[in-house]
Amino acid sequence: MRVVRQAVLLLRSELRQELRDFELLLSAGFFTLVLLAMFYLSFASLPVKHSLPAVPAMLWLTIAFVGVLTLTRAFDREREADTLRALLAAPVERLAIYLAKAALCLLVLMLCCLVLVPGLWLMFPGGAAFAEQPGQTALLVLLGCGGYVAVGTLFAAGLATGGGKNTLLFIILYPLTTPILLYALATTRALLDRHPDLPGFLGQMAALDLILFALAALLFETVLVGAGVAHRPRDRPRDRNLSRKPAP
């Protein structure tokens, strides 16, 4: 209960900061538009038959790119003034920090999808099914982004406390998020094909989200501050008094 209350407080503070300058939302939204425009320029002449498999790829590639940007920017806010360390030293459950950040990033990604999905629907004939099944589309995007953010938040946080080099996030996040992205690709294809098994696919995605989320939540504190198995002083370095005798 305490975790939830603290997570809500942290999320509220994040949203308050976001509503003052809209930095995260505007940069992520703009990047979504840019990617959408680039995809349109590249694939506008695609025949309908080929645009069907291309639409899921464009959807999840955009989310993967925008997701890294969002995660990086969300933790840059903490890096600038080193506030993450202040939170870690405060009586705040570490899980609450994870939950608040993940919720913020998920929210931003979902808002970007409000631009992205209608954009794909308008630009490519293959995306017509999005409009026919708005509920399933929303659930699919939520589950896909949720799994992505569950993994991404852990690694973005780990790099944010490590001091520098958050460009590494681009390298490590994509190989790790392939399972959820592959699942999302397959499910999106099923949705566009009006596959009868779609609810089953969505259920499997939800289960996968749960696994990824549980694993990330379990590892979060250990990655940020380390496990507390203190070595006993038997392996302590040699007594420095040998070298530092006071003068006679």
């Binding site: 790099l159 080099k165 590494l168 990655v223």
Partner: peptide
């Protein structure tokens, strides 16, 4: 990786 990235790599 940065100095403390051993733990992050382990999570990876």
């Amino acid at each position: 990786g940065p100095r403390s990235s051993d733990r992050l790599a382990a999570a990876l």
